[in-house]
């Protein structure tokens, strides 16, 4: 087996999602090469070479990989894919964006969002918002796979692996990045956070969301998350959304505040180790998955909790 992992990075830092994808590659077994496509991405390449299990780091450095647009990236991966039995990338918005293009160009299926490896051709993946787990076997010569980032333990440090340069593919010129507006925060990122404080429509407004949840997140050193309803209502930006169609998280502690617990929300957080729910409705479905449920008005309970933890 010979596996190509496509690294997620921002040219400077290697994303934790890449370490998890490498761990999934280790679970499949075989030689693992990592492709870093970017521009002025030496720092990311060096980080990649220091990951345990990596045989080789391949670097394609060109201006048209700086933004990692799907069209150019997929063309590069396809040009590099010969000889590999598996191509892997994280099931983040990065991997979800370009990997299906790779699969289509190779005329193979993509296996999305795997949570377990049963054999080099057999994988487990959630369907129906995680209400069922499908075990699927691929008949294709190359397996194109995205990896759920909560499902594997990040690969440790190791190496150093040798680095080699590969030729950039031509710039297709199909799309142009105009700008990125990344949410800036001093807090831990949602993905990979140890503790998450998450708020829903029960907070009533953006002001309430911040006034109630930030002090609590501060004392806990937690990341902040939200339900779709809270994002739709504009309390917080889109990248806070946890759920079937948002981010999938599995922290040690998830505190759901004013969130009812719709299946689409549960799909994104029910693998958390400990779940706490604070909701004034004793019938709210979130209590069916909560280890500790507090039926209370959040506007009383949350400040009380924050001061008790100070």
């Amino acid at each position: 087996m010979s596996i190509l992992v496509i690294a997620e990075h921002d040219n400077q830092t290697l994303k934790g999602s890449t370490l998890i994808t490498i761990a999934a590659a280790v679970a499949i077994g075989g030689d693992i090469d990592v492709l870093v496509a970017g521009h002025d991405c030496t720092a990311a390449v060096e980080a990649c070479a220091k990951v345990a299990g990596v045989s080789r780091v391949k670097v394609a450095d060109a201006p048209h990989y700086a933004a990692q647009g799907a069209e150019n990236l997929a063309a590069l991966v396809v040009a590099q894919a010969a000889g590999y039995t598996h191509v892997l990338s994280p099931a983040t918005t990065f991997g979800k964006n370009f990997m299906p293009r790779v699969a289509a160009l190779l005329d193979v299926a993509q296996i999305s969002d795997i949570v377990a490896v049963q054999a080099p051709d057999t994988f487990v993946r959630p369907i129906y918002a995680g209400n069922a787990l499908a075990t699927v076997r691929s008949e294709d010569a190359v397996k194109v796979i995205t990896v759920r980032t909560t499902a594997f333990e990040a690969a440790a440090e190791g190496g150093p692996a040798p680095v080699e340069t590969v030729e950039a593919a031509a710039d297709l010129g199909l799309a142009r990045l105009v700008r990125r507006e990344l949410t800036k925060s001093e807090r831990p990122e949602l993905a990979g956070a140890r503790i998450i404080v998450s708020g829903g429509r029960g907070l009533g407004s953006g002001e309430n969301y911040h006034a109630q949840l930030e002090p609590l997140a501060d004392v806990l050193g937690a990341a902040l998350g939200a339900s779709r309803a809270a994002v739709d209502a504009g309390y917080v930006p889109n990248d806070y959304q946890v759920g079937q169609t948002g981010k999938i998280v599995a922290p040690e502690l998830y505190v759901a505040i004013g969130i009812s617990g719709a299946i689409q929300h549960l799909a994104g957080m029910k693998d958390s180790k400990v779940i706490v729910a604070i909701n004034k409705d004793p019938e709210a479905p979130i209590f069916q998955v909560a280890d500790y449920g507090l039926v209370a008005d959040l506007f009383q309970a949350v400040p009380e909790l924050t001061s008790a933890l100070r």
Binding site: G69, T92, T93, F94, G173, L174, A175, R176, L177, V178, R179, R180, E181, L182, T183, A191, P237, N238, D239, K247
Partner: peptide, 15 residues
Amino acid sequence: EIDGGLETLEIRLPA
């Protein structure tokens, strides 16, 4: 909508 926030692209048609 991307994991870190928002991104704006200009694309050629058809798309």
